[in-house]
Design a protein around this nucleic acid. Structure first.
Lengths: 341, 341
DNA sequence: CGAATTCATGTGAACGTTCACATTTAGAGT
DNA sequence: ACTCTAAATGTGAACGTTCACATGAATTCG
């Protein structure tokens, strides 16, 4: 059906290897021959069979992104489109395929699944965007010599783990600090599930800000959400119903911030009049907020870019320097924060 | 390095074909042999090389989703996570790979790119979620016998085109009708770019609702946006500044509706007090709206599911009935609509 | 009990490339 | 013109599977 390298060779009156060279190393061919071959390629509308090429090369020009979420969980996930699109574009530029996996983990953890994908040559390497990952999985992945990059700092600091992340500790610190500097003394942290590294980081920055200012943490609240609008709203409601409610909120992301605003508005409060809010991270949700959220700018697009760049490089060459990068963040002041009155 | 089917055979004391059978047709083997082979597979931690298998089978167990958007355009796209996750899960269930493509079209249209992906055996078929597609591209795709499914009805009705879409005409009709039934006589349609099929559909439903009610369309406004919050807000502002502004809005999706609400609120208007809003389609954005939007429920998840199901089936078997499906929609009444006063 | 039949396994070739090496052709240099 | 080297092209084998067929063992039946 489809034409092969042999058909092209026959038509051009050369051997199959010459056709192969025309594709992979044109300079090694006599210009006249090259022209003949190219003409034959066009005439037959020949396209090299990547499967055969991969087999002969023992190479897999493909990277996978693994994000274990259900459709329901993805429904409000604006992190995903940014990350996957940025990886996808980077792959396209390097003639790599980009595969997506959203499967839930098997009961024995992720590594079985990853090993399978890699050993079956379905992917040459993996980018893992996991809410959390077990040490055992990591150790096993490293042991299997599977190339992988984590998006999100792992909870432990193994020498050989490659990862990129935004500086969540610093983000939380800057957010909290900003509020404390405005005179707030009772700040609430709207965090994620306590088991996540993200939550640990946010908490660390939160505490450090209080510490650096020498303010007692007696009225520093920490609430945990499942990163949905509904849970943020609910947690915020509980906080506002306290006898001594917080006057400001640091929220893990801007979807949570929207939940917090809703809770405040329902109680007749206004932002930033009665409640100040800073988003410790920022994705698309905040763009529709009113008033505009003061937030910590975290270049999520960068994450995908760095991860795929590292992944592709380390698939092509063996020797890549370790990727263990925490991206800097910066405060962007908008109008959801005000001095504490 | 990695073990092959031959290694397994040698260890188990059988031929390579027997190992192959153990994997692909276990019943054809003597139970004792099967057990021996399985043990060897486990001992060697053998994983079949999918690349080699695909080559031998002349099969490509992989489908691609093509969505030509930039990172910036994806930033607020909640349609994408739902679609891609639902396709992805369906692929996983059928042991298919799922590849993502976000590249912009070449100047001569999409079909060159698609042909390349298909003839190179990178994908066995494509799901295309394009804002719009040229007839020439479609014709060329069909001519090339590339299996593909469109998500979104194409502007023309070629017999051989496979597609799924939600019933945008009906959605728009129901939304408009609902508002007219509530007594509104001046409804605005916040649509997309006029060149899109989506916009045509919305307009058709919008007009038909007026027609069916026998209401003159003198005060029926149509505004075009680029499907962003900002443009919806801006268009809505212009509408509200008219001497005879609309009392209700049908918005193409709920992100636009949020933009409309913002414009209204800025003018001291309230929803649904002074302005009623219905979303003709619904994705995640509306979930944070206050008041909750009355909307037309469109099962976007279904779209991905139907498309991938059809794609996978038609890659595996030749003879698939045509997929030309328009999914029904239904009105969900919430609190963004009120009687016209 | 021998031939016919079924069941179980093995063998060569093929899928479409590229690699390593062999061979041919062309381009000098004296 | 004649070797010597460099450039250009061709050939067999390999990548790891599966397919089509061949072979051999076990079962059935008259």
């Amino acid at each position: 059906m489809a034409s092969t390298i042999n058909d092209v060779g026959r038509l051009a009156g050369v051997s199959r290897q010459t056709v192969s060279r025309a594709l992979n190393d044109p300079d090694s061919l006599h210009p006249t021959t090259l022209k003949k071959v190219m003409r034959a390629i066009r005439m037959l509308d020949y396209h090299p069979n990547i499967t055969a090429r991969n087999l002969a090369n023992r190479s897999v020009r493909s990277i996978g992104l693994f994000m274990p979420f259900t459709v329901e969980q993805m429904r409000h996930n604006l992190f995903f489109p940014v990350i996957s699109t940025s990886i996808c574009q980077h792959c396209a530029e390097n003639d790599f395929m980009f595969q997506l996996f959203t499967a839930a983990p098997e009961e024995e953890g992720f590594s079985g699944l990853f090993k399978k994908l890699y050993y079956q040559k379905k992917v040459g390497g993996l980018i893992l965007a996991l809410p959390s990952i077990k040490t055992r999985d990591i150790v096993e992945l490293i042991g299997s010599r599977i190339p992988f990059v984590l998006i999100g700092r792992p909870a432990f600091d193994l020498e050989l783990v490659h990862y990129v992340d935004v500086d969540n500790v610093q983000a939380s610190y800057m957010a909290t600090r900003h509020l404390l500097d405005l005179g707030h003394r009772s700040v609430a942290l709207l965090s994620a599930s306590p088991s996540l590294t993200l939550s640990e980081d946010l908490l660390a920055g939160f505490r450090k800000a209080y510490e650096d200012k020498g303010i007692p943490t007696g009225k520093a609240y920490v609430a945990h959400t499942d990163l949905t609008f509904g849970s943020a709203r609910w947690e915020m409601e509980k906080l506002l119903d306290l006898t001594d409610p917080p006057t400001a909120v640091v929220s893990a992301d801007d979807l949570l911030a929207l939940g917090a605003v809703r809770a405040a508005e329902e109680r007749g409060m206004s932002v930033p009049g009665n409640l100040s809010i800073v988003c410790a991270t920022h994705n698309g949700w905040g763009d529709i907020a009113h008033p505009k959220f003061t937030y910590i700018a975290t270049g999520y697009e960068q994450l995908g870019h760095l991860a795929s760049n590292h992944m592709i490089s380390s698939i092509l060459k063996q020797d890549m320097p370790a990727l263990r990068q925490i991206l800097p963040v910066r405060l962007v002041e908008c109008s959801s924060t005000a001095k504490c009155n």
